[in-house]
């Protein structure tokens, strides 16, 4: 049996990082909040580096509850898009050269989002990881957890329901599909 030679690690990194960049860097609001996303294999961690403009209570001081909400929602949408994009990218169905902010795959739409505020957000970096609990053809349910100094001490968690993009409609990313 002859097995195909495995791809070089550089090629794999390049492809996956380009796909992630297309998801993150094209969205102005993600840039406005300063959210970054790190990848280990297919596991993503969203990072919200501390910035003065994220403060909601200047006396404590504490992160704005709305910023926390937005951070968790962004992390959920990126995880959900990433989980569907991953297969297309790995199988080569999407050519990355054509992916930019105007030719991204259609994003899921938020139906609702529920947030638990567990402790006040400190004026320092925050991290979030999301888990897709169910992803059907039409609807998806995603849970997100956010922490700061200590992974075990969450400062917020959330659950959102999302409407998946209609796969039967023409998708701008199809231009990038082979």
């Amino acid at each position: 049996m002859i097995r195909p030679k495995p791809e070089s690690v550089e090629i794999v990194h390049q492809r996956r990082d380009a796909a992630l960049r297309a998801l993150v860097s094209g969205v102005p609001y993600i840039q406005f909040l300063g959210i970054e996303v790190e990848r280990r294999g297919d596991e993503l961690t969203a990072i919200l580096p501390f910035d003065e403009k994220l403060i909601g209570n200047p006396m404590l001081p504490a992160l704005h509850g709305g910023v926390t909400a937005a951070f968790l929602e962004v992390a959920a949408i990126i995880e959900l898009s990433w989980s569907t994009l991953w297969e297309d990218v790995e199988s080569g169905r999407i050519a990355l050269s054509g992916l930019d902010s105007l030719h991204m795959p259609r994003l899921p739409k938020t139906i609702d989002f529920t947030l638990d505020y567990l402790r006040s957000g400190l004026p320092r970096d925050a991290y979030a990881r999301a888990r897709v609990n169910r992803s059907g053809r039409r609807y998806a349910s995603v849970h997100v957890e956010a922490w700061q100094d200590n992974r075990a001490r969450l400062f917020a968690q959330g659950t959102g329901h999302f409407l998946m993009p209609d796969r039967d409609l023409p998708d701008p990313a199809d231009q990038a599909r082979r």
């Binding site: 094209g26 969205v27 102005p28 609001y29 993600i30 840039q31 406005f32 909040l33 909601g56 704005h64 509850g65 709305g66 910023v67 909400a69 937005a70 951070f71 929602e73 962004v74 902010s101 105007l102 991204m104 994003l107 938020t110 989002f113 701008p172």
Partner: peptide
């Protein structure tokens, strides 16, 4: 700066959340 979908120019849900929370 608050746009969530660059193709349509629609404001990100997170920005609406921040407004409602405030």
């Amino acid at each position: 700066r608050l746009v969530g979908d660059p193709r349509t120019g629609v404001v990100h849900g997170g920005a609406v959340s921040a407004l409602m929370d405030t």
